[in-house]
Amino acid sequence: MEATYTGAVTPSGQPAVRELTGLTITKYAVDPQMANNCYLLRCTTTGAQLLIDAADDAPALMELTGGIVDTIVTTHQHWDHHRALADLAAVTRPMTVAGEPDADAIADATGVEVTRRVGDGDIVHVGDVALEVIAIAGHTPGSICLLYTDPDGHPHLWTGDSLFPGGVGATFGDAEAFATLIDQVETKIFDRLPDETWFYPGHGGDSTLGAERSSLPEWRARGW
Rank of each mutant, 00 (worst) to 15 (best):
D108P: 06
Q77M: 09
T208R: 15
E186N: 08
E196L: 12
D174W: 05
T26C: 09
A135Q: 09
R18T: 09
R117W: 00
P141M: 08
L40C: 11
E2K: 11
P11D: 07
C145D: 04
D87Q: 15
D174I: 07
P59G: 04
T92Y: 06
A107S: 15
R220W: 02
A130P: 08
G204C: 02
V9H: 08
P194E: 12
W158H: 05
R192L: 15
I189D: 12
E212S: 03
D195M: 04
T187S: 13
H125Q: 13
F190K: 07
D70W: 14
M95I: 12
V17W: 01
V112M: 07
D191G: 11
G166M: 06
T45V: 15
D102V: 00
I134Y: 08
R18W: 10
S207H: 11
Q49H: 10
L146K: 04
D152R: 15
L61C: 00
P11F: 03
A60L: 12
A89L: 00
I68L: 14
G99V: 02
V185A: 01
W79P: 09
T171R: 02
L23D: 04
T65K: 10
H156N: 13
A130N: 14
T65D: 09
H76K: 07
Q77A: 11
G66P: 06
V124S: 03
E113A: 15
R116W: 14
H203F: 07
E176V: 15
I136D: 03
G7I: 07
V185G: 03
F178G: 04
T110G: 01
V168D: 05
A35P: 11
A135M: 11
D161G: 02
E186K: 00
Q49Y: 05
P165Y: 00
A84D: 06
P165C: 02
D191I: 02
H125A: 15
P141L: 09
S12D: 14
A86W: 06
V133F: 03
L181I: 01
D53L: 05
I136N: 02
A54T: 04
A55F: 08
L163P: 03
A48S: 14
G202M: 04
E113R: 12
A105Q: 13
A60M: 11
V124F: 10
L41P: 07
P194A: 06
A29N: 08
